[in-house]
Write a protein that binds this DNA or RNA. Structure first.
Lengths: 338, 338
DNA sequence: TTACAAATAGAAACGGCTTTCGATAATTAG
DNA sequence: CTAATTATCGAAAGCCGTTTCTATTTGTAA
């Protein structure tokens, strides 16, 4: 194979200057059609490809944005991602992905990519870092939060209102006649867990239902952990008749635990999840859940990031998207009170 | 915030040359302890961060490798990824991810990152591109295939033997006494589909079982598509009593279709999947499947890539890892013939 | 025809870091 | 104590594009 060509080589072959070759590539309208053609012919003939790192170095921008995800295998995030990607590609940006596997340390390490100018901007789909750190970061670099957020942090953010949607989910169970309603939260370090817990409590209190502390169980956000916490709940002296679970994957663990304990869902135990991932409508029984507008969240987040990168001004920084309660088999039996 | 410091600024503050600062950062043993300390103090005080793109430009290496995945949400690939990542990080490489969503065009576009030197090497977890193209690419750049492969292509490759494992899966069904065994393949454009189909046929033929062409159905590699193809199979005049399905997610679709048609699994229909994703042991009934050593595949692939990037020689280029048939509820009933 | 404006393309500077090469200082050997 | 060796550091070149500034050519108007 031939040695890689550089721009000056192409220039020589085309009898023009490197400047002209550069212009042909990035501002072709500034070059006369004949010269342009001449240069393009050489480029195609020798199969020249500009050295992108050199360009990045010169222009001081990479045209790459980084999306940091807490769990790459989650069907939920992949939808958000798609929204981000579409807008990004349309605007000439590449998207690269960082998976933290729910580890704050890894979240932190991805930030270096921004600090070291390896990416032009960043969308955080997980925000577990220190508020001050994020604030400082956002003051220097284009940064947008989506899905997760930080209280009182003035950084562009796109999400749903987790408190009200959790309230809605809990109230659905209350309307079905349940009074002994438990809640399995995600890690309480994550704001989403705290907000959903808050919504659960609001619903219980405003309906004058007692909140038994034993009915609130914290769990890692995965199938197994929720399975185990559910077994715990079911073995209480007065077990709950309904459980609102932090997310759908965990709700599956809950349902499995119920089945394995001889507890029928929804007859003996109603279950509500969160996120509306694909599997929820397939799992048996189908899972009642809160649907988030995943694609729209991603799209909006990327639009905000573009504005930041372009230095546009922003009137609003918080965007709250609409969610929806989707009632399925896991909570509802036909003919039941509603 | 202060304007970003560059190396020469740090040098000035520390009363040394930029060369020394550079050495402190990348070959500290070449600098006397006192100077080193002096420089480090300044670096910490002004919070200096080297401009990585400039470094990449100068050293002509990015210390980044790209992993191209056909489907980022697949639990299967995320395990492989983890193997790759561990080895990469240990050796000072960052991993970035490209998701093709099973689209050859997108696979192709990621290759530009290699051509334009934005990454030092690449692991392809999907290989649907033209053989010649891959061959040429591999002759110029460090490239490793894993999981998928291309017949007769002399590029380092790590995978299992899909033919023999598919044979094993099919023979399991035969040993259970089944004779009317169907196969739902993945897209036949993908070599994995062709090889698993081959294994299925081998098992059938060597056991003198007839292969009804209607028993072989091609399907997109997802839940819904397999669901539909299963309905088709079940509505045949003589429906199969067993189905070997291309992968686990599809097997779930198959089982769901059976349930929805009033066909009991495994009593009326035995189902075998492939990959052993996490959900397979949770789904009801648990799915009999072929386990791939996902982490080991990723690890090995990255080790090979490191060798390529270091210019080491390689005695062997094909690595076939060991798989295992895992028998669960979806195919097997206690007391049944085996 | 002359004067001026617009279009086109080239020369050269520049971005921040690494590394080679050479100079000087410190150390060791004889 | 001198000579040879080694340790330490600085000067400067170079990685490959982009962009500004300038010169030249072409086109237009009077």
């Amino acid at each position: 194979m031939l040695k890689t060509m550089k721009m000056s080589d192409v220039a020589k072959l085309a009898n023009v200057s490197a400047a002209t070759v550069s212009r042909v590539l990035s501002q072709p309208e500034k070059v006369s059609p004949e010269t342009r053609q001449k240069v393009m012919d050489v480029i195609n003939k020798v199969n020249y490809r500009p050295h992108i790192v050199a360009r990045q170095f010169r222009t001081q921008e990479t045209k790459i944005i980084l999306v940091v995800v807490p769990d790459i295998t989650s069907a939920f995030f992949s939808k958000v991602l798609r929204g981000i990607e579409h807008v990004a590609l349309e605007n000439g940006y590449q998207v690269i992905l960082g998976d933290t596997e729910n580890d704050v340390e890894r979240e932190n390490s991805y930030i270096n990519l921004l600090l070291q100018k390896q990416v032009d901007g960043m969308v955080l789909l997980t925000a577990r870092l220190d508020k001050n750190k994020l604030e400082e970061l956002a003051s220097e670099f284009p940064l947008v939060l989506a899905c997760e957020y930080v209280d009182g942090l003035n950084v562009p953010t796109v999400s749903i209102d987790n408190v009200s949607s959790a309230r809605k989910a809990t109230e659905h169970l209350i309307q079905l006649g349940h009074t002994k309603i438990a809640h399995i939260t995600g890690p309480i370090t994550v704001i989403l867990s705290r907000d959903r817990l808050k919504g659960y409590k609001q619903a219980m209190i405003s309906n004058e239902l007692e909140i038994d502390p034993a009915y609130i169980q914290e769990s890692e956000p995965n199938f197994e952990a929720s399975y185990n916490q559910t077994l715990k709940l079911l073995s209480l002296a007065t077990p709950p008749t309904a459980i609102f679970v932090f997310n759908d994957e965990m709700a599956m663990g809950t349902i499995k635990a119920a089945k394995d304990s001889g507890v029928r869902v929804p007859k003996d135990l109603a279950v509500v999840g969160f996120d509306n991932i694909k599997m929820s409508s397939v799992f048996e029984p189908n899972i009642t859940t809160i649907d988030q507008p995943k694609y729209a969240i991603g799209k909006k987040a990327m639009e905000l990031l573009l504005m930041l990168m372009n230095g546009d001004s922003m009137k609003k920084t918080k965007f709250v998207m609409k969610d929806e309660l989707i009632i399925r088999e896991s909570s509802y039996i036909k003919g039941n009170k509603l």
